[in-house]
Amino acid sequence: MAERTQERDRERERERQLPRIRLDQPRVRRPRFLPEYDPEAFGRLSERIARFLGTGRFIVWMTVIIIAWVVWNVSVPDHLRFDTYPFIFLTLMLSLQASYAAPLILLAQNRQDDRDKVNLEQDRKQNERSIADTEYLTREIAALRMGLGEVATRDWMRSELQDLLKELEDRNARGNGERRDLFPGDGSRGSDVPDR
């Protein structure tokens, strides 16, 4: 029993010596064996290279280098040649260039696709906002039109005033002296028909 107690005490002591993992603090970074790189910087570099590979300048430079390579290895003395007739080293260099160019171009295309997705999502949200604004304005204009249907317009007022003017002119032209009210009623100041 004393052995068990001593064993438990030793285990507790080991637990105390081990550092506790705290979740509220960042973990200590472990050393890495692989080199670290910034993916954004690498992506920007790959886009620059892919843009250069897609230009006429690259094709011209590549053609000049290949022609110079072939002319050098055909025309100079044998001891100065570094790649003889089947041009195996030239083929190796062109294969190496192609093996690096293809992944760089694909990486640049993937980055462009990601940017296009973000732009497409922003355009879609902007279109949704524009549609919502247009629908709101359409409802407001319809409400204003409905409200204006009950309001006396300038043209309606003009026509009413012109009718009253004609009626006054007709009365003066008749001149028979009979008195006619323009606004018939019971003589009270108010009217039983409400104004609009």
Rank of each mutant, 00 (worst) to 15 (best):
S188N: 11
R14K: 12
R196S: 12
R51A: 14
G149A: 08
G175A: 09
I49P: 09
N172L: 06
L94W: 02
P31Y: 02
F52K: 06
V193S: 06
L53A: 10
L107D: 03
T5G: 02
E167K: 13
I59S: 11
P77S: 08
Q126W: 00
R57S: 12
W61D: 15
Q97G: 12
D195G: 13
I49A: 08
G185S: 07
F58E: 08
R4T: 13
L168A: 15
N110Q: 10
A108E: 02
Q109W: 02
V70T: 12
R32Q: 13
A108L: 01
R115M: 13
G175R: 01
R12G: 04
E178A: 05
G54S: 13
L137F: 09
G56C: 01
D192V: 06
I141C: 10
L144Q: 07
G56V: 02
F87E: 05
L90N: 04
M62P: 02
S191H: 09
Q162W: 00
A152S: 14
D114F: 03
G190V: 03
D170E: 11
R196P: 04
L80E: 12
A68M: 13
L165K: 12
I88C: 03
L161M: 14
A132N: 04
I141T: 13
E36T: 15
T138S: 14
D155F: 01
A143Q: 08
E140W: 00
W156T: 13
P39D: 10
A173M: 07
S95N: 01
L182I: 15
R158V: 10
T5L: 08
D83G: 05
E15S: 09
L23P: 00
R196F: 00
E11L: 08
V151M: 08
A102P: 03
F33G: 14
K117E: 08
V118S: 10
A102G: 09
R139C: 09
S130Y: 03
M146I: 11
L144H: 10
E7A: 14
P39I: 05
L94V: 12
Q122M: 10
D24T: 06
A152I: 10
D163W: 00
Q109C: 05
L120W: 02
E121K: 06
Q97F: 05
L90T: 08
V118H: 05
A173N: 06
W69G: 01
Y85A: 03
L53Y: 04
V118W: 01
P26Y: 07
P26Q: 13
S188P: 07
A50Y: 02
R48I: 04
L18D: 11
E36K: 10
R4W: 02
R20I: 09
L18S: 14
D186H: 05
R22A: 07
K117R: 15
G190L: 09
L45K: 11
D163G: 07
G190H: 13
L53C: 05
L53W: 01
D24S: 15
D181G: 00
L92G: 10
S188L: 02
N127F: 03
D113C: 09
D116I: 04
R30Y: 11
P86S: 09
L165W: 00
L144W: 03
D114M: 10
R111I: 01
L148A: 14
R4Q: 11
A152H: 05
